[in-house]
């Protein structure tokens, strides 16, 4: 293991996960946030100040600097141009999910990184969450037996902004919240989704994007799954949302609630009642894993293909919600 400093460029703070990732990067030894590139000057400057680094308006300026890798937290449609530019500049990429908004875009991103010899990691922090890691062990233990059914949920508050503009996000709640749980299931079972039925709606916010989604799908190991992707948490919900998995097994039921490690607090000032994280695991482990892969030139633990597989399910689900039919999920 080398001790050299890993230099990171943050490309866009459009997705506010960037704040969490930057906070983790800032605290990691041997890591430097060299630059923040953001075409939104006010936002870029604000976060540059917060993370004590410089701001540049264009990613080209950032990519021309002495950096090792980039963390992309742009609007979903901009993942592709930013990833292609980073690959061309020879920089490793950690890209926010969903990897892209079309299968073709994701394939192009994967191919470009392969050809350039740079690592491409999809930001799937939930599979690094300690309860999900423990769940993986538990479902494979003989005490649990066969998995018979899984019910997943990734509900949240409506993020608004570009998330509800399909031209920028590629969809709405279904594309936003399908991919985490699908990735977790692929991680746990090493299986692919084979077919999906989904229904979606936009009655919560009444916007152009979907804000409600319910998927029913099957894994290649035969396990049936349901997944609720809805932005069903009201804006004054005590927490942003969560990820839960109920796994019905031969000898019992496992209930995972990945972001339940909270304390409840009621303040007489606004917001009056919230659930605040005691310790939410996943993000630090994921960011660290990316940095260590860059530092040590090892494989990233979550690949671009992982991002593509999850995206394929989300896109098939969106199609099913249109056709009201079971749609096959094919792996490109």
């Amino acid at each position: 293991m080398t001790t050299s400093t890993v230099k990171v460029a943050m490309l866009s703070f459009a997705h506010l996960h960037a704040v969490g990732y930057a906070t983790i990067l800032k605290a990691l030894p041997g890591v430097e946030i060299t630059v923040i590139a953001d075409d939104n000057a006010e936002r870029g400057q604000q976060f540059a100040q917060m993370f004590e680094t410089q701001w540049v308006p264009s990613i080209d300026e950032a990519l021309a600097m002495d950096i090792d890798c980039v963390v992309i937290c742009s609007e979903n449609v901009n993942h592709k141009p930013m990833t292609l530019a980073a690959a061309k500049a020879g920089k490793h990429v950690l890209c926010e999910k969903p990897l892209a908004t079309t299968v073709e875009d994701a394939q192009e991103m994967i191919a470009a990184c392969d050809e350039a010899g740079v690592k491409l990691m999809t930001a799937f922090p939930v599979r690094f969450n300690s309860s999900i890691v423990a769940l993986k062990d538990a479902v494979h233990s003989e005490h649990f037996g066969a998995t018979l059914t899984v019910m997943g949920r990734n509900p949240g508050t409506n993020p608004g902004g570009w998330f509800v503009d399909p031209a920028l996000s590629g969809g709405g709640a279904v594309i936003d919240h399908t991919v985490h749980v699908v990735d977790v299931l692929r991680f746990i079972y090493g299986a692919e989704v084979t077919e999906v039925y989904a229904q979606s709606g936009n009655k919560l916010a009444g916007g152009v994007s979907d804000d409600t989604g319910l998927l029913m799908f099957k894994l290649s190991n035969g396990v049936p799954v349901s997944l609720d992707t809805s932005w069903s948490r009201p804006s004054n919900w005590p927490i942003w949302g969560g990820v839960t998995l109920d796994v019905i097994g031969e000898f019992g039921v496992l209930f995972a609630n990945a972001y339940n490690n909270n304390y409840d607090i009621a303040e007489t000032t606004t917001p009056s009642y919230t659930w605040q994280a005691v310790e939410h695991t996943g993000d630090p482990e994921m960011v660290t894993a990316f940095i260590e892969a860059v530092r040590n030139d090892t494989d990233v633990p979550v690949t671009g293909v992982d991002g593509l597989r999850a995206l394929e399910v989300a896109l098939a689900a969106m199609k099913s919600a249109e056709t009201n039919q079971l749609e096959p999920v094919t792996q490109a």
């Binding site: 059914t149 019910m151 039925y197 229904q199 709606g201 029913m216 099957k218 049936p224 799954v225 019905i248």
Partner: peptide
């Protein structure tokens, strides 16, 4: 819907999940 009712498991335990879409657009799990 998905479930165990027509599998070999059903004599010992049974479990079912269903997605219902109502005429008013409400989606139910």
């Amino acid at each position: 819907a998905h479930g165990l009712s027509f599998t070999d498991w059903h004599t010992k335990r049974d479990h079912a999940i269903a997605s219902l879409t109502f005429r008013d657009g409400t989606i139910a799990h």
